[in-house]
Design a protein around this nucleic acid. Structure first.
Lengths: 195, 195
DNA sequence: ACCTGAACACCGTTCAAGT
DNA sequence: ACCTGAACACCGTTCAAGT
């Protein structure tokens, strides 16, 4: 019986269990975290999963589609700070920090997202919901929410990429001071807007 | 005589003249402008120059070195607005606009620079000289010039990449309004700093 | 249903040989 | 001095064949 089931599912000769999309994309993310963008190839991914490269194409349309999938689930799962009734400045700081940390955990994937902004364009994503809420608190008029959030997001990702790709931290305190400078600039700028 | 010269220079069978670094990198830039990052490969570049792919390696150490070369000369040649004694806000606007336009002319190369910030790290480059001058005018203390200029540069490149890679202009006026929002945010932020 | 091997059209690059 | 062809170690992906 078990033999029959296994035979009819055409399980890989090299593996016990069939592939799943979940397994594929989490392994892919691990490869990307470890080896950068060049660390992820369909062939290396297949080797890591102990499977023929072509088997992947039964679960994923293309490498691009796989990357899109990875980014989408990462963006959905991103944990955002809740509305805690503190001043908008503090909430913006918390949001930026959460974003920042997430990006530093998955720098290569983040760089890819930055280069393909359409992958997180969905305004129902937690990041955007949270950012909109904070910007409303800051007094940004409804008609300017879209534009302002786009600009801020571009700033933050620009900063993060610079940090990821740049001369890395001799002094880790230097990172924090850069981050503070960036955030203070934005908060000052927004405050000027609202008033 | 001419024959002898040509023979001893071992000129390509397919071309009249020998390759030059200048010819290589300007052709490479043209390919990149036209076809994005994927538009530039050593093999396509050689084909465009009507030369064997391996000939390129006599003038350039690697593809990476070629890209570095291209970015460096582009950054050196970038034409910056002169000090015209207008308020720093106007001068910053002029600087950002010049940068913006240059990036829109060579979006793929610009994206590459953004991903390899060390390529324009040289503080003697016109961009940095100009930015430092404007930031001094804005009242940024000497000890914060490096940090502030890094952050601003990251913001601006983040914005530009977002614009290049993002949903492109349905309405070209939309671009300008985004750009204004970004710049006003920065100027407001800096003004808060200095005071 | 799912997996596979061979093949195709690409990469960047090394190396020994040509003139 | 400069150019070249063959070769190597990679890519993503198609397609027909296996179970």
């Amino acid at each position: 019986m078990a033999d029959a089931t296994i035979r009819c599912m055409a399980v890989s000769a090299r593996r016990g269990a069939p592939l799943s999309l979940e397994e594929i994309s989490s392994t892919a993310l691990r490869l990307m975290d470890a080896g950068g963008v060049e660390g992820l190839s369909m062939r290396k991914l297949a080797a890591e999963l102990d499977v023929n490269p072509m088997s992947l194409y039964h679960h994923v349309e293309s490498k691009e589609a796989l990357l899109a999938q990875m980014c989408a689930t990462a963006a959905e799962r991103m944990h955002m700070p809740p509305d805690d009734d503190t001043p908008w400045q503090d909430q913006l700081r918390a949001l930026a920090t959460a974003y920042h940390e997430h990006a530093r955990e998955h720098p290569a994937m983040w760089t890819y997202v930055h280069l393909h902004p359409e992958l997180i364009a969905d305004r129902r994503l937690p990041v955007w919901e949270t950012l909109y809420r904070v910007l409303r608190l800051a007094g940004v008029p409804e008609s300017e929410l879209r534009r302002t959030s786009d600009v801020l997001h571009a700033f933050v990702t620009g900063f993060i990429i610079g940090e990821i790709q740049g001369h890395m931290p001799d002094d880790p305190g230097e990172i924090d001071r850069n981050f503070d400078t960036a955030l203070n600039l934005i908060i000052n700028g927004l405050a000027g807007f609202a008033s």
